[in-house]
Simulated scan of single mutants.
Amino acid sequence: MRRHLCGIRTAWTEAARPDEAADAVAQAVGDGALSQIVAFFSADYDPETLADALGARFPGVPVAGCSMSGGLAPTGGLDRGLVVIAFPAERFRIVSTVLDAIDHLDVERTASAVRALRRTLDPHGPEDTAAAGRFALSLIDGLTNAEETVVSAIAWALDGIPLVGGSAGDDLRFRDAVMLHGGRIHRKAAVLVLVETDYPVEIFKSDNFAPTATKFVVTASDGEARVVHELNAEPAAREYAMAIGLDPEGLSPMSFAAYPLAVKVGGEYFCRSIRRMNADGSLSFFCAVDEGVVLTLAEPRDIVAATRTELARLDAALGGVDLIIGFECVLRRLDAESRQVRHEVADLYRRYGVVGFETFGEQYRAMHLNQTFTGIAIGRGGAGTAAS
């Protein structure tokens, strides 16, 4: 467990059973008035049992969260288990909501729900919207293929409140991602948490790839299903495999992590990672990819150096980082493992108090991303550090 200077307590466990995990984090968090629990949990747990256990261990405290593909804790990555962020009642005002049926999203109704939630943090009217120390966390079912629509509607309604988040996963099974809110488990849903604090905060994103000269035009795709059938008028998997020097049969999550594809938006490149190769030679993606889009083959940069640079920038900007709530693509972990540098990344996360989960996609402002590390950094506010 770590007790941060801002009053937030973070706890994590690799207990095998959900009731044991809830006991462990409750004991670590201890007593004190809390405003919100945010929990990220293993797909190995029965989610209803975990929801009941957390409700019993933290009576009267709102709990929100989602299933994960691995946890992030100051001690390093967790392959399974439970990660909890306990926000104190003092100096944190937090409200949250769940958005159901996101696979058939009503954009206007969603925006209205977000505006209503936002107004609970705007007691003096719209002029409060841009107040410093506000941010939003989005947790979205990563198997509904709906993140682009959801995050666009949320960001529009937030009207300037910075948004970061992650897509819930289930390791790499691609079967069942679940959301937790209000003591209940939700599927095909998203959870939005709005936070207001007087501590300094800053959202960020970091990636470790650079564009190459190799381009692909998407000549046949199903945007809703996130399936690309053809690149450059050739079967997608074969064209991609040839570009990276592999046979299509040799494609794997490791190769997708090592050689991502990117799209250029507003002069900046954003990753569009491949989820899997299908039996018909098509490629399934973690993001929507429409026909006519030009994809650029990217090559990796030093993930340790890129991460260190961004965390050092945040540390300087905030006058010292107290903790970071982070959302990291599971493909970044696979890439770090394949390059045998995961322990070096974990050392950086330990130094800066990173806590969060490994995702099926990341959100940053109005964008849905892949193979990125996004999050919110909370500054020390003039205090020193504390841990236990």
Rank of each mutant, 00 (worst) to 15 (best):
L50P: 00
G30Q: 05
F216C: 09
F41W: 05
P18H: 10
A28V: 09
E234I: 03
R57Y: 03
A51G: 00
E20I: 12
V83C: 09
A387K: 09
E108H: 08
A146L: 02
V227L: 02
Q340P: 10
I244F: 07
C271F: 03
R134T: 14
G7V: 08
E148K: 05
F135M: 03
D170C: 00
R184K: 08
A16K: 15
S252A: 12
G223Y: 14
A279R: 15
P211Y: 07
R93S: 14
E224T: 13
P162Y: 07
A279C: 12
A111V: 13
Q27D: 11
A317L: 12
S338R: 04
G32S: 09
P88M: 08
D122T: 11
M179D: 00
I102K: 00
A279P: 10
I376W: 05
V341M: 01
L99W: 04
R365L: 11
D222E: 11
D46K: 13
P88N: 04
L192G: 01
A89Q: 12
E268T: 14
G356I: 09
V151W: 02
L194F: 01
F286C: 09
F209V: 10
V289H: 00
A15K: 10
C287I: 13
A24P: 08
A241H: 06
A153Y: 02
L180A: 06
L163M: 09
G166A: 03
A113V: 09
A155F: 11
E127T: 15
E20G: 14
D280Y: 02
P253K: 04
K264C: 14
A136H: 03
R276M: 14
A305E: 15
A64P: 02
A28K: 01
A39Q: 03
A383T: 14
L143A: 03
G169N: 01
R57H: 12
H124V: 08
S252C: 06
R238W: 10
W156E: 10
P74E: 01
R57I: 04
M254I: 14
H124I: 13
Y45R: 01
I325S: 07
R134K: 13
R57E: 06
V38E: 02
E20C: 13
A305W: 10
G353L: 06
R339N: 07
G319L: 07
S284Q: 15
V354F: 12
E299H: 08
L50T: 07
T296V: 12
V355L: 10
A241W: 02
L117Y: 04
E48A: 06
R175G: 12
V191F: 04
G70I: 09
A73W: 01
T372W: 08
F285E: 01
F357G: 07
L251Y: 06
V227W: 03
A317Q: 09
F204H: 04
A33H: 13
R313M: 07
R187L: 07
V193I: 08
V61M: 07
G381R: 06
R313L: 11
R272V: 03
Y349I: 12
E90A: 15
L121P: 10
G381K: 04
I324R: 03
G71I: 06
A225D: 12
